[in-house]
Design a protein around this nucleic acid. Structure first.
Lengths: 150, 150
DNA sequence: CTTGCTGCAAACAGTTTGCAGAACT
DNA sequence: AGTTCTGCAAACTGTTTGCAGCAAG
Protein backbone atom coordinates (compact mmCIF):
# COMPACT_ATOMS: atom_id res chain seq x y z
CA UNK A 1 0.00 0.00 0.00
CA UNK A 2 2.88 2.34 0.68
CA UNK A 3 4.46 1.42 -2.63
CA UNK A 4 1.14 2.03 -4.31
CA UNK A 5 0.91 5.54 -2.90
CA UNK A 6 4.47 6.31 -3.84
CA UNK A 7 3.64 5.28 -7.35
CA UNK A 8 0.59 7.52 -7.29
CA UNK A 9 2.70 10.47 -6.20
CA UNK A 10 5.34 9.80 -8.83
CA UNK A 11 2.66 9.68 -11.49
CA UNK A 12 1.31 13.00 -10.24
CA UNK A 13 4.80 14.50 -10.15
CA UNK A 14 5.53 13.33 -13.67
CA UNK A 15 2.30 14.76 -14.99
CA UNK A 16 2.97 18.09 -13.32
CA UNK A 17 6.61 18.15 -14.37
CA UNK A 18 7.80 18.19 -10.76
CA UNK A 19 11.32 17.12 -9.90
CA UNK A 20 12.11 14.26 -7.63
CA UNK A 21 14.18 15.47 -4.71
CA UNK A 22 15.63 13.86 -1.64
CA UNK A 23 13.46 16.09 0.60
CA UNK A 24 10.22 15.02 -1.04
CA UNK A 25 11.20 11.36 -0.80
CA UNK A 26 11.99 11.70 2.88
CA UNK A 27 8.79 13.56 3.69
CA UNK A 28 6.68 11.13 1.68
CA UNK A 29 8.27 8.14 3.42
CA UNK A 30 7.69 9.57 6.84
CA UNK A 31 4.16 10.66 6.06
CA UNK A 32 3.27 7.24 4.67
CA UNK A 33 4.94 5.33 7.47
CA UNK A 34 2.68 6.79 10.11
CA UNK A 35 -1.00 6.14 10.56
CA UNK A 36 -1.74 8.92 12.95
CA UNK A 37 -3.19 12.31 12.17
CA UNK A 38 0.00 14.30 12.25
CA UNK A 39 0.20 18.05 12.55
CA UNK A 40 2.77 19.82 10.42
CA UNK A 41 4.77 20.52 13.53
CA UNK A 42 4.92 16.84 14.47
CA UNK A 43 5.75 15.84 10.95
CA UNK A 44 8.47 18.40 10.76
CA UNK A 45 10.03 17.14 13.98
CA UNK A 46 9.97 13.56 12.72
CA UNK A 47 11.51 14.63 9.45
CA UNK A 48 14.20 16.63 11.11
CA UNK A 49 15.05 13.84 13.55
CA UNK A 50 16.16 11.53 10.78
CA UNK A 51 17.16 14.25 8.42
CA UNK A 52 18.33 17.51 9.91
CA UNK A 53 18.59 20.42 7.57
CA UNK A 54 15.17 20.08 6.01
CA UNK A 55 13.25 23.29 6.62
CA UNK A 56 9.68 23.80 7.77
CA UNK A 57 8.81 25.66 4.62
CA UNK A 58 9.61 22.57 2.58
CA UNK A 59 7.37 20.45 4.76
CA UNK A 60 4.54 22.93 4.33
CA UNK A 61 5.05 23.08 0.58
CA UNK A 62 5.36 19.34 0.21
CA UNK A 63 2.27 18.52 2.22
CA UNK A 64 0.26 20.79 -0.02
CA UNK A 65 1.54 18.80 -2.96
CA UNK A 66 0.38 15.58 -1.33
CA UNK A 67 -3.09 17.05 -0.95
CA UNK A 68 -3.05 18.12 -4.57
CA UNK A 69 -1.90 14.65 -5.58
CA UNK A 70 -4.87 13.21 -3.70
CA UNK A 71 -2.98 11.13 -1.16
CA UNK A 72 -3.45 13.37 1.85
CA UNK A 73 -6.34 15.27 3.31
CA UNK A 74 -6.21 18.35 5.48
CA UNK A 75 -8.07 18.17 8.78
CA UNK A 76 -9.16 21.40 10.43
CA UNK A 77 -9.94 20.69 14.03
CA UNK A 78 -10.46 23.69 16.26
CA UNK A 79 -7.11 23.54 18.04
CA UNK A 80 -5.31 25.74 15.56
CA UNK A 81 -3.07 22.98 14.27
CA UNK A 82 -3.60 21.80 10.74
CA UNK A 83 -3.30 18.04 10.54
CA UNK A 84 -2.92 15.73 7.59
CA UNK A 85 -4.22 12.22 7.21
CA UNK A 86 -3.96 9.58 4.53
CA UNK A 87 -6.54 9.56 1.85
CA UNK A 88 -7.15 6.96 -0.77
CA UNK A 89 -9.10 7.80 -3.86
CA UNK A 90 -12.83 7.51 -3.35
CA UNK A 91 -12.66 6.51 0.30
CA UNK A 92 -14.02 8.63 3.06
CA UNK A 93 -14.28 8.47 6.79
CA UNK A 94 -15.12 10.69 9.71
CA UNK A 95 -13.73 11.25 13.19
CA UNK A 96 -14.46 10.66 16.82
CA UNK A 97 -12.34 13.06 18.87
CA UNK A 98 -11.64 12.89 22.58
CA UNK A 99 -12.01 16.32 24.15
CA UNK A 100 -9.74 15.29 26.96
CA UNK A 101 -6.74 13.57 25.38
CA UNK A 102 -7.29 14.57 21.74
CA UNK A 103 -7.25 10.97 20.54
CA UNK A 104 -8.73 10.66 17.06
CA UNK A 105 -10.61 7.56 15.97
CA UNK A 106 -11.86 7.02 12.47
CA UNK A 107 -15.20 5.56 11.50
CA UNK A 108 -17.47 5.19 8.54
CA UNK A 109 -21.23 5.02 8.37
CA UNK A 110 -23.06 4.37 5.18
CA UNK A 111 -26.47 5.32 6.45
CA UNK A 112 -25.27 8.74 7.50
CA UNK A 113 -23.54 9.24 4.15
CA UNK A 114 -26.80 8.46 2.40
CA UNK A 115 -28.79 10.81 4.62
CA UNK A 116 -26.26 13.57 3.99
CA UNK A 117 -26.72 13.20 0.29
CA UNK A 118 -30.49 13.39 0.74
CA UNK A 119 -30.24 16.53 2.83
CA UNK A 120 -28.02 18.21 0.27
CA UNK A 121 -30.44 17.33 -2.51
CA UNK A 122 -33.37 18.59 -0.54
CA UNK A 123 -31.66 22.00 -0.42
CA UNK A 124 -30.69 21.90 -4.07
CA UNK A 125 -26.99 21.46 -3.30
CA UNK A 126 -24.62 19.36 -5.32
CA UNK A 127 -22.69 17.62 -2.54
CA UNK A 128 -18.93 17.59 -3.02
CA UNK A 129 -17.58 16.50 0.32
CA UNK A 130 -18.33 16.65 4.00
CA UNK A 131 -16.71 16.80 7.39
CA UNK A 132 -18.13 15.27 10.52
CA UNK A 133 -16.55 15.27 13.91
CA UNK A 134 -18.10 13.66 16.96
CA UNK A 135 -16.54 15.18 20.06
CA UNK A 136 -16.71 13.45 23.41
CA UNK A 137 -14.78 11.54 26.02
CA UNK A 138 -12.97 8.38 24.99
CA UNK A 139 -13.20 5.11 26.95
CA UNK A 140 -9.87 5.43 28.74
CA UNK A 141 -10.46 9.03 29.77
CA UNK A 142 -13.89 8.07 31.09
CA UNK A 143 -12.36 5.30 33.15
CA UNK A 144 -9.67 7.66 34.45
CA UNK A 145 -12.32 10.18 35.43
CA UNK A 146 -14.31 7.58 37.34
CA UNK A 147 -11.25 6.36 39.18
CA UNK A 148 -10.34 9.87 40.22
CA UNK A 149 -13.76 10.38 41.79
CA UNK A 150 -13.88 7.16 43.76
CA UNK B 1 -36.25 36.46 21.24
CA UNK B 2 -33.63 39.17 21.29
CA UNK B 3 -34.89 40.40 24.63
CA UNK B 4 -34.79 36.86 25.90
CA UNK B 5 -31.15 36.47 24.98
CA UNK B 6 -30.25 39.78 26.49
CA UNK B 7 -31.83 38.63 29.69
CA UNK B 8 -29.84 35.40 29.49
CA UNK B 9 -26.63 37.33 29.11
CA UNK B 10 -27.45 39.66 31.96
CA UNK B 11 -28.15 36.70 34.18
CA UNK B 12 -24.81 35.20 33.22
CA UNK B 13 -23.04 38.52 33.79
CA UNK B 14 -24.67 38.91 37.19
CA UNK B 15 -23.68 35.41 38.25
CA UNK B 16 -20.09 35.96 37.15
CA UNK B 17 -19.90 39.40 38.68
CA UNK B 18 -19.28 41.03 35.31
CA UNK B 19 -19.89 44.70 34.81
CA UNK B 20 -22.34 46.07 32.33
CA UNK B 21 -20.58 48.37 29.91
CA UNK B 22 -21.59 50.34 26.88
CA UNK B 23 -19.27 48.26 24.67
CA UNK B 24 -20.81 44.96 25.67
CA UNK B 25 -24.30 46.34 25.09
CA UNK B 26 -23.37 47.52 21.63
CA UNK B 27 -21.67 44.29 20.64
CA UNK B 28 -24.51 42.19 22.01
CA UNK B 29 -27.10 44.28 20.14
CA UNK B 30 -25.25 43.98 16.88
CA UNK B 31 -24.55 40.29 17.30
CA UNK B 32 -28.19 39.57 18.10
CA UNK B 33 -29.56 41.74 15.32
CA UNK B 34 -27.91 39.69 12.61
CA UNK B 35 -28.80 36.19 11.60
CA UNK B 36 -25.75 35.47 9.52
CA UNK B 37 -22.64 33.62 10.56
CA UNK B 38 -20.41 36.60 11.15
CA UNK B 39 -16.66 36.48 11.37
CA UNK B 40 -15.01 38.59 14.04
CA UNK B 41 -13.72 40.88 11.35
CA UNK B 42 -17.21 41.50 9.95
CA UNK B 43 -18.64 41.98 13.39
CA UNK B 44 -15.90 44.41 14.29
CA UNK B 45 -16.57 46.46 11.17
CA UNK B 46 -20.29 46.60 11.93
CA UNK B 47 -19.58 47.60 15.49
CA UNK B 48 -17.15 50.28 14.49
CA UNK B 49 -19.49 51.67 11.85
CA UNK B 50 -22.07 52.66 14.44
CA UNK B 51 -19.64 53.09 17.24
CA UNK B 52 -16.12 54.11 16.33
CA UNK B 53 -13.57 53.80 19.06
CA UNK B 54 -14.41 50.26 20.11
CA UNK B 55 -11.29 48.14 19.68
CA UNK B 56 -10.89 44.72 18.12
CA UNK B 57 -9.62 43.27 21.35
CA UNK B 58 -12.89 44.12 23.03
CA UNK B 59 -14.83 42.37 20.30
CA UNK B 60 -12.68 39.28 20.67
CA UNK B 61 -13.02 39.29 24.44
CA UNK B 62 -16.75 39.94 24.35
CA UNK B 63 -17.51 37.19 21.84
CA UNK B 64 -15.74 34.71 24.06
CA UNK B 65 -18.02 35.80 26.88
CA UNK B 66 -21.05 35.16 24.68
CA UNK B 67 -19.82 31.65 24.03
CA UNK B 68 -19.27 31.12 27.73
CA UNK B 69 -22.74 32.47 28.42
CA UNK B 70 -24.12 29.91 25.99
CA UNK B 71 -25.67 32.29 23.50
CA UNK B 72 -23.06 32.00 20.75
CA UNK B 73 -21.19 29.14 19.19
CA UNK B 74 -17.83 29.26 17.47
CA UNK B 75 -17.68 27.83 13.95
CA UNK B 76 -14.34 26.68 12.63
CA UNK B 77 -14.57 26.40 8.89
CA UNK B 78 -11.34 25.88 7.04
CA UNK B 79 -11.01 29.41 5.71
CA UNK B 80 -9.04 30.70 8.66
CA UNK B 81 -11.81 33.00 9.86
CA UNK B 82 -13.50 32.16 13.11
CA UNK B 83 -17.21 32.79 12.86
CA UNK B 84 -19.89 33.03 15.51
CA UNK B 85 -23.50 32.01 15.27
CA UNK B 86 -26.47 32.17 17.58
CA UNK B 87 -27.06 29.28 19.86
CA UNK B 88 -30.03 28.60 22.07
CA UNK B 89 -29.74 26.24 24.98
CA UNK B 90 -30.23 22.62 23.97
CA UNK B 91 -30.68 23.29 20.29
CA UNK B 92 -28.30 22.11 17.68
CA UNK B 93 -27.96 22.31 13.96
CA UNK B 94 -25.42 21.64 11.25
CA UNK B 95 -24.34 23.40 8.07
CA UNK B 96 -24.47 23.17 4.33
CA UNK B 97 -21.70 25.30 2.89
CA UNK B 98 -21.31 26.44 -0.68
CA UNK B 99 -17.74 25.97 -1.85
CA UNK B 100 -18.21 28.66 -4.45
CA UNK B 101 -19.92 31.58 -2.72
CA UNK B 102 -19.45 30.50 0.92
CA UNK B 103 -23.16 30.71 1.65
CA UNK B 104 -24.03 28.86 4.84
CA UNK B 105 -27.38 27.14 5.29
CA UNK B 106 -28.47 25.52 8.51
CA UNK B 107 -30.27 22.23 8.85
CA UNK B 108 -31.20 19.67 11.43
CA UNK B 109 -31.66 15.93 11.09
CA UNK B 110 -32.84 13.81 13.94
CA UNK B 111 -31.97 10.51 12.35
CA UNK B 112 -28.36 11.51 11.90
CA UNK B 113 -28.19 12.77 15.47
CA UNK B 114 -29.43 9.40 16.66
CA UNK B 115 -26.95 7.51 14.51
CA UNK B 116 -24.13 9.68 15.79
CA UNK B 117 -25.03 8.81 19.34
CA UNK B 118 -25.03 5.13 18.42
CA UNK B 119 -21.63 5.34 16.77
CA UNK B 120 -20.15 7.07 19.78
CA UNK B 121 -21.57 4.42 22.08
CA UNK B 122 -20.26 1.66 19.90
CA UNK B 123 -16.76 3.07 20.43
CA UNK B 124 -17.26 3.60 24.14
CA UNK B 125 -17.34 7.39 23.81
CA UNK B 126 -19.51 9.68 25.86
CA UNK B 127 -20.73 12.07 23.17
CA UNK B 128 -20.54 15.73 24.14
CA UNK B 129 -21.07 17.56 20.90
CA UNK B 130 -20.50 17.26 17.18
CA UNK B 131 -19.81 19.25 14.10
CA UNK B 132 -21.01 18.36 10.65
CA UNK B 133 -20.45 20.35 7.50
CA UNK B 134 -21.74 19.33 4.10
CA UNK B 135 -19.72 21.09 1.44
CA UNK B 136 -21.00 21.49 -2.09
CA UNK B 137 -22.42 23.87 -4.63
CA UNK B 138 -25.53 25.82 -3.78
CA UNK B 139 -28.54 26.11 -6.12
CA UNK B 140 -27.74 29.60 -7.40
CA UNK B 141 -24.08 28.84 -8.09
CA UNK B 142 -25.12 25.68 -9.93
CA UNK B 143 -27.46 27.69 -12.08
CA UNK B 144 -24.78 30.30 -12.73
CA UNK B 145 -22.34 27.58 -13.75
CA UNK B 146 -24.80 26.06 -16.19
CA UNK B 147 -25.55 29.43 -17.77
CA UNK B 148 -21.88 30.15 -18.20
CA UNK B 149 -21.38 26.92 -20.17
CA UNK B 150 -24.32 27.33 -22.51
C1' DC C 1 -12.36 54.40 46.18
C1' DT C 2 -11.74 49.91 44.42
C1' DT C 3 -11.73 46.80 40.87
C1' DG C 4 -12.84 45.42 36.44
C1' DC C 5 -12.96 46.90 31.50
C1' DT C 6 -11.11 49.15 27.46
C1' DG C 7 -7.99 50.69 23.75
C1' DC C 8 -3.71 50.65 22.16
C1' DA C 9 0.27 48.57 20.68
C1' DA C 10 3.29 44.96 21.13
C1' DA C 11 3.61 40.01 21.32
C1' DC C 12 2.44 35.53 19.55
C1' DA C 13 1.65 31.24 16.71
C1' DG C 14 0.95 29.23 12.50
C1' DT C 15 1.73 29.76 7.80
C1' DT C 16 3.42 31.91 3.50
C1' DT C 17 6.75 34.21 0.61
C1' DG C 18 11.10 36.43 -1.58
C1' DC C 19 15.44 35.41 -2.71
C1' DA C 20 20.17 33.62 -3.33
C1' DG C 21 22.32 29.46 -3.81
C1' DA C 22 21.97 24.31 -4.44
C1' DA C 23 20.20 20.46 -6.99
C1' DC C 24 17.82 18.05 -10.56
C1' DT C 25 17.26 16.90 -15.57
C1' DA D 1 22.84 25.24 -18.98
C1' DG D 2 18.44 26.04 -17.64
C1' DT D 3 14.99 25.76 -14.40
C1' DT D 4 13.01 24.03 -10.28
C1' DC D 5 13.56 23.33 -5.38
C1' DT D 6 15.36 24.41 -0.91
C1' DG D 7 16.59 26.83 3.42
C1' DC D 8 16.65 30.86 5.63
C1' DA D 9 14.67 34.77 7.39
C1' DA D 10 11.43 38.18 6.92
C1' DA D 11 6.60 39.07 6.16
C1' DC D 12 1.76 38.20 7.03
C1' DT D 13 -2.67 37.04 9.31
C1' DG D 14 -5.60 36.11 12.96
C1' DT D 15 -5.65 36.25 17.81
C1' DT D 16 -4.02 37.20 22.55
C1' DT D 17 -1.91 39.90 26.17
C1' DG D 18 0.33 43.70 29.17
C1' DC D 19 -0.50 47.93 30.72
C1' DA D 20 -1.96 52.68 31.77
C1' DG D 21 -6.01 55.15 32.01
C1' DC D 22 -11.15 55.06 32.28
C1' DA D 23 -15.51 53.84 34.23
C1' DA D 24 -18.88 50.98 36.85
C1' DG D 25 -20.37 49.68 41.36
Amino acid sequence: MIAEKKKAFNAFAAKKGLRSTRQREVILDIFLSTHEHLSIEELYLKVRASNPGIGQATVYRTLKLFVEAGLARELTLSDGHTRYEHQMAGEHHDHLICLNCNAIIEFEDETIERLQKEIAERHGFKLVTHKMQLCGICPSCRKAAIEKVS
